[in-house]
Design a protein around this nucleic acid. Structure first.
Lengths: 186, 186
DNA sequence: TGTTCAGGTCAACACCTGTTGACCTACGGT
DNA sequence: ACCGTAGGTCAACAGGTGTTGACCTGAACA
């Protein structure tokens, strides 16, 4: 064990983070209790405090998130929306973090601020080269309205017609919308 | 007072409902406490229970909502999205109920169910005549993704670029999207 | 004048929350 | 054999929650 730097504490730390992500994603910030998270991770609630200090810091650690946005400069201009939509759906489905962040951001100011950063600091730069730089922030905001709205309806509210869409249908509907927000005039 | 049927209790009941709407809209379901709502309405917390039974029923009463959707059959086909967008923005801004419903629906199942009903039972019928009836539910769902997403970003998360849009800009961007979701092919 | 009852107050309940600190245990280094 | 310490357990705290029931008050009506 001295060879690999993996200590005993690293595993519990990871277990807590995993359980926290699941609970925050399923229940939102206030209903996800430290006791429940600790139970899921099969440890004592006091350990959570030892490792993360308090609930807010635990959430901050659990909701750290990188959109891992691809380079869009190689994509044909009219397909840029479809590419982004596909990437968003991927990113949404292989990780509980985004759902946790969305659910919490509605009632928790720290989470809301992180959401704002996500679209300003990660999406902004990637789309900056697609149109007039002065409009980048607005375009990022518009993309956020459609991307978060779709995620809200599909993964959180589970509106039946939205949850029932196949990946292809979703991309076919949202792609052109996103493309227009990214490259349309005005 | 015997003339008008307005009893003393009607005013307190209305005061409670008003305070409840504000608190639920500002804080979400779990953080809006009965004690705080009672304090806002300048009454005793026990009165809230007398009038509404329990917190869930209070919320149900506070989040009763009618979108009051206009008849769209008279509107030119290409402007139907702009008309709906304008109506949504109006409806959103002259009432705290929708914000309360959105904030709560993310963590409260009763609220989420009411949200689903809103778009299925109120939006569905109004847009049914615009396209193939078999696609009505899907179209209503798509409109929901954009409408709720915009409201989420503008009124709840307060994303700066989205909150900064003027009414005209918002309608110019969202209108065509909504129109396509209502009347576009596929 | 006396009774009734809608409307309101008050104090308490049982429970759950985040958080703390005192204590235990096992193991690596000397 | 000893000790220091990383990692973990346990019980309790202080405060907040929804909810309840016993009690008060004042006016309408007989």
């Amino acid at each position: 064990m001295t060879e690999t730097g993996e200590r005993r504490s690293d595993r519990t730390r990871a277990a807590i983070l995993g359980a926290a992500r699941e609970r925050f994603a399923a229940d939102g910030y206030e209903r996800a209790t430290i006791r429940a998270i600790a139970a899921d991770a099969a440890i004592d609630p006091a350990m959570v405090m030892r490792y993360f200090g308090n609930k807010e810091k635990l959430f901050a650690a659990a909701a750290e998130f990188d959109l891992r946005l691809p380079d869009l400069s190689a994509v044909p201009r009219e397909q840029v929306g479809a590419a982004l939509t596909n990437h968003f759906l991927d990113r949404w489905e292989d990780d509980e973090s985004l759902k946790a962040l969305l659910r919490a951001s509605v009632t928790n100011e720290v989470a809301a601020e992180r959401m704002r950063q996500l679209f300003a600091e990660q999406l902004g730069p990637v789309i900056g080269s697609l149109a007039d730089p002065a409009s980048t922030a607005t375009r990022a905001g518009l993309v956020a309205t459609q991307a978060l709205g779709f995620a809200l309806c599909r993964y959180v509210l589970a509106l039946p017609p939205v949850a029932a869409l196949t990946r292809e249908e979703a991309v076919a509907w949202l792609g052109p919308t996103i493309t227009r927000y990214l490259t349309g005039e005005l």
